[in-house]
Design a binder for these strands. Structure first.
Lengths: 159, 159
DNA sequence: CAAAACTACGTAGTTAACTACATATATTCA
DNA sequence: TGAATATATGTAGTTAACTACGTAGTTTTG
């Protein structure tokens, strides 16, 4: 991967994705090693329901920052393995209200110590001179002010 | 996306991916706005061939850090739009040697000023208190020493 | 109060990476 | 030197996100 590393910031999207993939793969291994039957991709939905208890499909999608079709397919999986259940909202028949099952809540209790280990390991790994998590937050903040595209446009005009 | 941002480091894989996606989408817009017919996903291959001129399929895959099947499908696309061409290696008949076409080289010359703008925009965006690119390099370095999984295992045992 | 606009959810198809497996050629070693 | 192993490429199928589009309720408005 020499060329990509040497090409510097131009290949930053590729490197971000590579890092994300590696974290996720190790996540699978860590859950497995701790006897927990859970996939990292489920985390955003499950964690959101852990904190908010009852939400509609679109509300979950917004919380986790995915599109609603992606969210629906995650919800289908989670319903299949009985970690969540859903019912129609009587006040608004368009809505489907989602919540954790008892099994889902038990699983969360089981995962809490694993999450603690993960937090410790991730913190150890990312507490370097330039903190990765903070760097992400800072860049997200910058993008809110002005997107990469807008910045490029401005540089093209003034350069 | 409140919950994900608030859950801190546990959702770091999700946030890395989201950032990567946003960069790539803006990349598409920037190429388009500059009248260049090029997709960001082609960058690793094209840039590698720009620097190394003739390489086999597996050599390219290693340089860009993808699996060889992924690389083959990228190469197919690039051959279709005539940015690269390939021929059998006479010294080793298993190998296919890949290189840029004249069209590919011209396109690179056309893209160079766009890349400069991108570098400037990305640098502006990511030069914050904690530098994202450096943070990525530092974490990659840490992972080489000991993977996330190994760290989690060690923490579980000693904790 | 009916038409228009909006919101919530769902399905179908696409994309860009992956793993697993198959085949052909090259190299090594008993 | 031929059998075993390794390497290079290719194909098929999977995955986890996406966009585009359709339908059914809800809200707004002329």
């Amino acid at each position: 991967m020499n060329v990509i590393d040497e090409s510097g910031i131009l290949a930053i999207a590729t490197r971000l994705q590579r890092l994300s993939d590696q974290f996720r793969k190790d996540g699978v291994l860590i859950y497995k090693a701790n006897g927990v039957d859970f996939e990292p991709k489920w985390f955003p939905v499950i964690y959101t329901l852990h904190l908010r208890s009852v939400l509609s499909v679109v509300e979950i999608a917004n919380e986790i920052g995915y599109t609603h079709p992606s969210t629906i397919s995650l919800l289908k999986e989670l319903e299949k393995v009985k970690l969540i259940r859903s019912k129609k909202d009587k006040a608004d028949e368009r809505k489907r209200l989602i919540q954790l099952t008892a099994k889902g809540q038990e699983l969360i209790e089981q995962m809490k110590p694993v999450w603690e280990v993960m937090v410790a390991a991730l913190t150890e790994l990312t507490t370097t001179q330039n903190n990765l998590l903070q760097a992400i937050s800072e860049v997200e903040e910058q993008m809110k002010r002005l997107s990469l595209f807008e910045r490029a446009k401005r540089i093209s005009l003034t350069g």
